[in-house]
């Protein structure tokens, strides 16, 4: 019902799929932050050793990776929606969308670098 070109920069180009991805990634991120929250409840003022030990546990690292991926998907859907709501001139909108995706890719690999540097 809507011109395909206007929807191609959305994550999946399909409203239903975008919506489901947004919800799924939200749940993963929610649980992840709950785990981090739990860590800081038990260690309100951690030192380097406690923190690095926590992030060297395999499941924490894998979960962090999944959370990073979820952040990538969740933010793409969300920011794309915001941009297409408010930014109407095509070149600016396209640039903002491309820039957002670039930023999210950088965040993703930056996160991996943080997590995997002390194997």
């Amino acid at each position: 019902m809507v011109n395909k070109l206007t929807t191609d920069m959305s994550l999946t180009g399909n409203g239903l799929r975008d919506w489901i991805v947004q919800r799924f990634s939200a749940v993963i991120l929610g649980v992840y932050f709950f785990v981090l929250f739990g860590f800081f409840v038990f260690h309100p003022h951690p030192d380097y050793l406690i923190l690095s030990e926590f992030f060297s546990v395999t499941w924490v690292r894998v979960f962090s990776l999944i959370a990073l991926l979820s952040l990538f998907l969740h933010a793409w859907v969300g920011v794309w929606t915001v941009i297409t709501d408010y930014v109407k001139p095509f070149p600016l909108r396209f640039l903002l969308e491309a820039f957002t995706i670039l930023l999210l890719i950088i965040y993703f690999f930056w996160g991996i670098e943080i997590l995997w540097r002390f194997v």
Binding site: Y48, L51, Y107, E113, I114, L115, R117, F118
Partner: peptide, 11 residues
């Protein structure tokens, strides 16, 4: 990410 980067780099 910068804070986490610092926190997990070394002491």
């Amino acid at each position: 990410l910068y804070i986490f980067d610092m926190a997990l780099s070394d002491s």
